[in-house]
Design a protein around this nucleic acid. Structure first.
Lengths: 193, 193
DNA sequence: ACACGACTAGAACGAACGCTCTACCCAATA
DNA sequence: TATTGGGTAGAGCGTTCGTTCTAGTCGTGT
């Protein structure tokens, strides 16, 4: 029996796919490359994911969803003031991006855009991820005393602005877009107090 | 000799590539599909773009750049108040997205993410496009009396938020993210008056 | 000792990829 | 009329794609 704490083949495959999707997107990532990166074989990939690339991609999107949500939650809980907490989120994203040599952006954005209107099952998985992240921000704002409707609306823009700024930061290889996004979002949130 | 006003083969190829990049991204678009869509042949594609897919993609990014800039400029000039003008931009994007059945998002975002860190020449072209659009917003704000540094900073967030909201709107097939982005950006801009 | 299911291994399929190549058409010049 | 060259046409190159398939390994329960 496999030890509970070592990483099984299935999990290695999902993580490899998630990482490759983050760095090069869905279309550019081949199953051969995935199996190599995961130190698995093509047979294993199709054993664990009979639905092929689509099924694996959906699982990888969910993995990226959880991963990103964990980071977001940690940053939001680290700082009490909601505006400053959002700045902390932006700073974390900037740091991760810079440290990876501007390679590790949002784990699912590229895939979300590539699948939109073309691969409904994957599109749905990415949509759920964004909704999930929005929920974290919305909860934080409500706990800080914001009315529910204001919190929900702001959560949309907070997540979308962070997404846009992360994309821009990656393309321009600069932390500026994310730092400005944090500052501006904090100001926007504060203006509703 | 070809009449000046009819569309030449080269231009048809660039437009087809730009449209396909907008709808399905760089990686998912094959040269065979491009030449079919453009009613041209593979020979013509390589005649006009000896550098192959990369050279054609760069030209298509520049085409999308100009196209998007034209829309942005039109919306910004249509309304005098800068906050309301940004709302007009968001509304235009939402309308275009809905009318295309949620297919026509930003013409270059998908390609920008796919090429970031992998195809430097294309990455550079997308970076220039974003800088160009940012310049339009920055100019509008400065003409409305904003100091240069504030205008430049705000322009970053305005473009990035619109980009993020457009992505989100496309994935969720809803105008809400763009409408909220417009409202919030207007409020943010007004807060600097 | 045996059988079984979980998992690994990789050859091979048809299709599509980016790209190269040769042949050809045809209007503009000399 | 002869020549030239921009542009068109499509067969075919080697490679890789997602997927299928058969064979084999290995640990476990009986």
């Amino acid at each position: 029996m496999r030890t509970k704490h070592e990483i099984g083949t299935r999990e290695r495959i999902v993580r490899a796919m998630s990482r490759l999707m983050q760095r090069q997107g869905y279309e550019a990532t081949g199953l051969k490359q995935i199996s190599q990166e995961a130190q698995a074989t093509l047979g294993s990939v199709y054993h664990f994911f009979p639905g092929g690339k689509t099924e694996l991609t959906i699982e990888a999107v969910r993995h990226g969803d959880r991963e990103f949500a964990d980071h977001l939650r940690a940053a939001l809980e680290r700082v009490d003031d909601p505006g400053q907490a959002i700045i902390a989120c932006a700073d974390d994203l900037a740091e991760g991006l810079r440290e990876s040599g501007w390679l590790d952006g949002c784990p699912i954005t590229t895939t979300a855009l590539e699948s939109a209107g073309r691969v409904p099952d994957i599109q749905r998985a990415t949509e759920e991820a964004f909704a999930n992240w929005r929920g974290l921000v919305s909860d934080k704002l409500r706990r800080s005393g914001f009315p529910e409707d204001v919190a929900g609306d702001l959560a949309h823009t907070v997540i979308n602005t962070l997404e846009g700024a992360e994309m821009s930061a990656q393309v321009s290889q600069s932390e500026t877009p994310l730092r400005l996004a944090g500052r501006h979002l904090a100001r926007l949130v504060d203006s509703y107090r």
